[in-house]
Design a protein around this nucleic acid. Structure first.
Lengths: 156, 156
DNA sequence: ACAATTTAGTTGAAGCATCAAGTGTTGCCG
DNA sequence: CGGCAACACTTGATGCTTCAACTAAATTGT
């Protein structure tokens, strides 16, 4: 028998769905307009920029950006065409490909960051106090873990 | 000068981005696999099902599903082809179109609901206490409002 | 040492979402 | 009343995401 959502859960769920449906496009839209970037493109560049040698293997970058390898591969191909990122075979293992941020990619990221951070601040954090931020981190972290756990359950 | 995110905000933000990147596909995936439905398709059917006469005008449905009119129009066309939904011109105003859930659409929704609710429960609410749910509702509601407010600022 | 599995990544096709541009309708203001 | 702006959609093109299928390399088991 299905256990339905109670009223509180229902309201919380509708709002969370609202966040996914509205915030995502809003972020994409600002980055697209100002920098010809997707939010996911931005995340890739940002994750690379914070890594040792500005380089990661595909699967590691996929993990850090919460993406499938397939999605990442397509996007990296696109970024590579723009010379913002470069692929090199790993010296360690021949089935591993390394992705690195190029100088140009770094420059793009640097120029995109302020506008993006402003947007995130104004859409997400403006008006939240420290408790809210902590709660957000806690609950969002919890959800991400549940999704990861369920993926393991269904793919194993 | 850009006001960067502090460490707490940074962590909270990465996790929220994780939710958008992982939860959305997870929901789509379950509904797609089991019912040949997108999460957004589901939302449309669900919102119609709760409305007077199972009918809404396009713009009202767009509002309730947090979608652009354009997105909704494409999706309604698809649902219409499957006879889950029907478009009729409004008697009140000739520029308004009404969308109604058909019997078949209702049946699809009824059969999809248990699996979807189970998924939402297990990915989102499992392991959250009442305070967490309240916090989620509060913070998510806040974000949705901010995004809506910013849309008004930039389109006006 | 060899076959079978698993891992890492790529690719192409199909379906979605977004944007810009279009149609027709209504309200409004002089 | 006439024209002009705003509204309520629809459409087509483009780019993004997913899924399934594929290649190739490493690991495991025998």
């Amino acid at each position: 028998m299905t256990r339905w959502l109670d009223d509180d859960e229902q309201r919380a769920w509708l709002r969370l769905a609202g966040v996914m449906l509205k915030l995502s496009p809003a972020l994409d839209s600002q980055l697209q307009r100002d920098c010809d970037l997707t939010h996911f493109d931005y995340l890739c560049l940002a994750m690379l920029s914070e890594s040792e040698d500005r380089t990661l293997r595909m699967s590691e970058l996929a993990g850090r950006t919460n993406a499938s390898l397939s999605r990442l591969s397509h996007v990296v191909s696109k970024l590579e065409k723009r010379d913002w990122v470069a692929r090199t075979p790993s010296p360690d293992s021949r089935r591993v490909t390394l992705v690195s941020l190029t100088e140009q990619g770094w420059d793009v990221l640097v120029s995109a960051a302020p506008g993006h951070v402003e947007t995130v601040r104004s859409l997400v954090f403006e008006g939240l106090d420290a408790d809210d931020v902590a709660a957000l981190e806690r609950v969002a972290g919890h959800i991400v873990e549940q999704v990861e756990a369920s993926r393991l359950r269904t793919t194993t």
